[in-house]
């Protein structure tokens, strides 16, 4: 494997409103001295899709999971995550509120072993929404936004586990957006899906970007170039390059990025 200078990087700050930004984020798993992620400083533009790409072990998922504090129990995260003028990486911050505003969809669809409706209403009820009318409304809106409504509207009481993989993943998206988050984090959401479901999911994501800030980790470079407007390239725990997607894929500034997007890597 070719050795690149990991400290050589090219990182831009997108113009316009920034929804979320990190400042020198460093992640250590467990008691490990070796950081899985160092010095990541990125700003994510509001109502845009940002893709995080890189090989396995590059730290992109680690980084993403730190953004809504999913790593709290398994890793130590240093540095700042700024959201609404608050450093949400501070232990004083209400982590449940953080996750309500910054939702997450995982690699493998993980619907609850409950009905489709309950999958969506469970967290809403826990958050104190009890009005039946409103609950029903939220189920419908979120399923429509996730482009699942037409397929399931007749059997909302069916077990979510009976849905296909692609449908389950869109249900997970619906479940997240029913909480009316600001930001949606997606961790390789299409990696367990077939090409048709993937294509549907991508259309859905583009639609969602009108109302949500989306950050998506993906293995698939075509997917990154199709859906995102900004792309960050991660390598061995470092952010090597962050720029408009077009730049990353066509005229990257760093050799490592060039090699990765052209497939001449490793």
């Amino acid at each position: 494997m070719q050795v690149y200078d990991l400290n050589k990087n090219h990182i831009v700050t997108p113009p316009g409103e920034i929804a979320l930004s990190t400042n020198q984020l460093q992640v250590n798993y467990g008691n490990s001295k070796q950081a899985s992620m160092v010095d990541a400083s990125l700003s994510f533009p509001r109502f845009q899709i940002t893709a995080l790409i890189g090989a396995s072990g590059s730290g992109k998922s680690t980084y993403l999971r730190s953004l809504n504090r999913m790593n709290d129990r398994i890793a130590t995260v240093h540095g700042e995550i700024m959201y609404h003028n608050t450093n949400i990486n501070s232990p004083k911050v209400n982590v449940y509120e953080v996750r309500k505003h910054i939702g997450m969809v995982f690699q493998k669809p993980n619907p609850f072993a409950k009905s489709i409706t309950e999958n969506i209403t469970f967290a809403l009820k826990a958050a104190g929404i009890t009005n039946r009318q409103e609950l029903r409304q939220r189920v419908e809106t979120s399923l429509k936004e996730a482009a699942l409504w037409d397929e399931v509207k007749d059997d909302l009481n069916k077990s979510a586990l009976a849905l296909s993989g692609g449908q389950q993943q869109r249900l997970c998206i619906a479940r997240s957006i029913a909480m009316k988050p600001d930001i949606l984090l997606l961790d390789e959401p299409a990696s367990a899906l077939d090409p048709i479901s993937t294509a549907k999911l991508e259309v859905t994501l583009k639609e969602l970007a009108k109302n949500y800030t989306i950050i998506i980790v993906t293995h698939n470079m075509q997917q990154a170039s199709r859906v995102s407007s900004y792309t960050a390239f991660f390598h061995l725990g470092h952010v090597i390059e962050y720029d408009q997607t077009e730049t990353i894929f066509q005229t990257p500034n760093i050799q490592a990025t060039h090699d990765y997007v052209t497939g001449n890597f490793g």
């Binding site: 999913m70 953080v98 996750r99 997450m104 993980n110 958050a127």
Partner: peptide, 9 residues
């Protein structure tokens, strides 16, 4: 993860 990612305790 699904549960806590929704902001549940």
């Amino acid at each position: 993860e699904a549960g806590i990612a929704l902001g549940l305790s």
